[in-house]
Simulated assay, not measured.
Amino acid sequence: MQAERELCQRLKRQITVARRMIRARIEAAVSSALRGPWTQFTGLFEIPYWGSARIRTVVN
């Protein structure tokens, strides 16, 4: 059970790091005025203050 918890925590940290990297690239694209739908993606990769990564659903 402890090993599973540690694995889950490690995976959560890896997901959080990946989401932060993606968010940084999106923000760089927006600030550089690159072509593309970058502003539509900004809200998708928000990381809540309590540290859990969530993917928000996009409704068209």
Rank of each mutant, 00 (worst) to 15 (best):
C8I: 13
S31Y: 03
Q2N: 07
Y49M: 03
I22P: 01
A29M: 03
R56E: 11
R25H: 05
E4C: 01
T39D: 11
R54I: 01
W50E: 05
L7D: 03
A24P: 08
A29Q: 06
Q14W: 08
P48A: 05
Q9K: 13
I22Y: 01
E27Q: 08
E6S: 08
P37G: 04
R23T: 04
I26M: 02
I55N: 13
E46R: 02
M1H: 11
Q40D: 04
E27K: 09
W50D: 15
A33C: 13
A53N: 08
Q40L: 14
E6L: 11
V17S: 15
G36P: 14
L11K: 13
M21L: 02
A24R: 13
A3C: 08
Q9N: 10
L7S: 03
Q14Y: 08
S52M: 08
I55M: 05
T39A: 12
T42C: 11
T16H: 02
R54G: 00
E4T: 02
R5I: 12
V59F: 06
T39F: 13
T39Q: 15
F45Q: 04
R20C: 03
P48V: 07
R25M: 00
V30M: 08
A24H: 12
M21H: 01
R54M: 02
L44N: 06
R10M: 03
T42A: 10
F45K: 00
W38M: 01
M1R: 09
R25T: 00
S52F: 00
R35W: 01
S32Q: 09
R13F: 07
I26W: 09
R20V: 07
R20D: 00
Q2A: 10
N60T: 03
R35N: 04
K12G: 10
V30F: 06
C8L: 13
R10T: 07
P37E: 03
W50S: 04
P37A: 10
R23N: 07
E46S: 07
R56A: 04
S32R: 10
M1V: 06
S52C: 07
R25W: 01
P37Q: 10
F41S: 13
N60K: 12
T16A: 06
Q40I: 01
T57K: 15
A33M: 11
Q14I: 08
M1F: 13
G43F: 03
E27L: 05
R35A: 14
R56Y: 03
Q40F: 13
A18R: 10
L11F: 04
S31D: 15
E46F: 02
P48W: 00
A29L: 09
R23P: 01
G43R: 00
G43W: 09
Y49L: 06
A29H: 06
W38D: 05
V17E: 15
P48F: 02
L11D: 05
Q14F: 11
Q40H: 14
F41W: 14
R54K: 08
V59C: 08
S32D: 08
A28G: 00
R56F: 04
R23A: 04
A53V: 13
A53K: 07
P37F: 03
R19I: 09
Q40W: 10
F41E: 12
E46K: 02
G43N: 09
Q2F: 06
C8M: 04
M1L: 09
V30N: 06
R13W: 01
T16N: 05
K12A: 09
A29T: 05
